[in-house]
Design a protein around this nucleic acid. Structure first.
Lengths: 342, 342
DNA sequence: TTGAAAGCGCTAACAA
DNA sequence: TTGTTAGCGCTTTCAA
């Protein structure tokens, strides 16, 4: 008589419409309602109509959390990026997310902030969500996180790099090939005194090493290197250029570890009246969309980031649906885009 | 004798270590293990030690999906942005994500792609995941999505704009105030023939209208407007500037709806040898980080995007923890940053 | 084609 | 402080 229920205990739940409500309204069993919603062709036309009707009348939205728990398939993919602001990786994330969404998956985004400690915490949190797959920017070095990830059994795709020992799947390109090719490209253009401006991350380091090696191999003097640390800003590029101009006045080519740094280098050359490309050639990395339309247009290394996202999504989806992926390594390559600055 | 189990039915589950396994190993009840993991001070030191030990030995990672289902709290926040590549919103997303993560929440990211149809699909998918809160860039106009969102009862924060009729919470600023203030700012500098370059979105439209109104009110001639449509690229800015220079040769100030467009406008002035700011003043919108260090440095409208993210996170977390939020509207304002181009 | 029963892995409610 | 019981909302398994 109190308007409540007659059971002893009560849990509140979320209070939202559930499949049971829909089923009751349609006069069928919950499981039948479930089939009508998820696999309509397993159900008779009349029942289908009744259920869909009830769905509309109630405004029912399936609870994917519950569904995920029951089926051990969360339809959630986690992606880890170092940063999201002005980052080369966002083109990849955008196409990854788009492809996943069209296949019925959602993306969880985590920022590792270029810090190992944070990345560890993040991966722990990510694994706790039991995603159907994990997208990593870069290669995860041996360590606690790698072990945990391996133990979790969750499909993983590492990206934007190559390694003979991936955790699982891999979509990337060779950073040392880039360093070497850019050095040779510059030397073929007659450049003899090369410098390099780089951020303090491991991949940029590998490009730098290969660049330096190729230059020595090409019979030129040692590469002058400026490491700008964690600051990837245009300002760092300017500051680096100030140093270079002072310490290596005869420099005639500069390879930067990002387009933004290259833009900074260019800005400083302009400010100091140094002719580009006549006196100094500049090459960036990443091919930020708007560079092509600037004056002078920056020569750079182009990575097809959208393709990395799409291929990764494809890999992850295949695995989530239980299909094998073979081969599970893709080298998407890169290209040197020659524009005004070389 | 067959090494399997002796029950009739069997579900496989995910095969991972569960709280039951940990509890069994520690010799306590599952709920006690749960308390040891989640609320350690509700448990005696000895039990705590035993359980934590078992956790380490097994490598147990709690299944937050199951936990979320049981407690009706997913600890998931969904964010919807139009785009992620070169977008002004990413600073907001980054700080939102960071703040949420530190409080134990994860971020789900969805791209609406400036399309209503896609946004509707996206919101449906988002609601199905039962997030504890939803972050929206912009105001959701009346329609199916708004109704559904309202009906879902999920806390929502709309951002980057102001409205008298928010769905729920609101963290933003006034776009018409910006348009008006920039116009007055330019006129106060003696500019008399104003033009405007804008992308085809509703917020830019409101800035444009207020800008034009203020110019007329200031006794100047009508504003010449170039709408670049959906193309927010630097190239569009250049093309717009070509048109302006032809059609309004006496133009002396231009307000752009994004920094990237402004950069395009600047590029074209440079290409054509037009003096900035002597002959033409340029104002952008968004304050992309690297603009300050370019030459000439672009004057622009600065929005504290990181603050929007932080405040939104705070709102969402408060609501998720069941606390009331009052007031639930914040105007974060904006500022006109004067640099070399005005 | 439809349904009953049993759980996915966890936590809220209640009791001791 | 610890445990028992009963679910959260859905899907799998098995049977009809």
């Amino acid at each position: 008589m109190n308007g409540k229920n007659n059971t002893k205990r009560s849990r509140r739940g979320s209070g939202a419409i559930t499949l049971r409500d829909v089923a009751k309204l349609a006069g069928v069993a919950p499981i039948t309602a479930s089939r009508a919603v998820n696999t309509p062709d397993q159900v008779s036309p009349e029942v289908l109509k009744k259920v869909l009707d009830a769905v509309h009348r109630t405004g029912y939205v399936p609870n994917r959390i519950a569904g995920g728990l029951a089926s051990s398939r969360s339809r959630l993919i986690a992606a880890v990026v170092p940063s999201t602001v002005m980052s080369v990786f966002m083109e990849t994330i955008e196409s990854l997310n788009g492809t996943l969404f069209d296949a019925g998956y959602q993306l969880m985004l985590g920022q590792s902030g270029y810090s190992v400690a944070r990345e560890e915490l993040l991966l722990e949190a990510v694994i706790g969500r039991r995603p159907d797959g994990i997208f990593l920017t870069g290669i995860l070095p041996p360590g606690k996180s790698r072990t945990r990830l391996l133990a979790s059994g969750i499909p993983v795709v590492e990206t934007w790099d190559l390694t003979p020992t991936p955790i699982d799947m891999l979509v990337g390109f060779s950073h040392s090939d880039i360093g070497r090719d850019v050095a040779n490209f510059l030397m073929a253009k007659g450049r003899r005194r090369l410098a390099l401006v780089r951020a303090d991350d491991e991949r940029a380091g590998r490009r730098a090493t290969a660049f330096a090696d190729a230059v020595v191999l090409g019979g030129q003097r040692d590469v002058f290197v400026v490491n700008v640390g964690d600051s990837r800003s245009l300002r760092s590029g300017r500051e680096a250029m100030v140093r270079i101009l002072v310490e290596v006045p005869d420099v005639d080519a500069i390879f930067c570890s990002s387009d933004l740094l290259a833009l900074g280098v260019m800005t400083e050359t302009k400010a100091q009246g140094v002719a580009v490309p006549e006196r100094i050639a500049i090459v960036g990395f990443g091919d930020v969309p708007f560079l092509a339309d600037m004056v002078p247009a920056l020569s750079t290394v182009r990575i097809n980031g959208a393709d990395i996202g799409k291929q990764s999504a494809r890999f992850l989806i295949e695995r989530a649906e239980g299909r094998p992926v073979n081969p599970c390594v893709i080298d998407v390559g890169f290209s040197i885009v020659e524009r005004d600055t070389t």
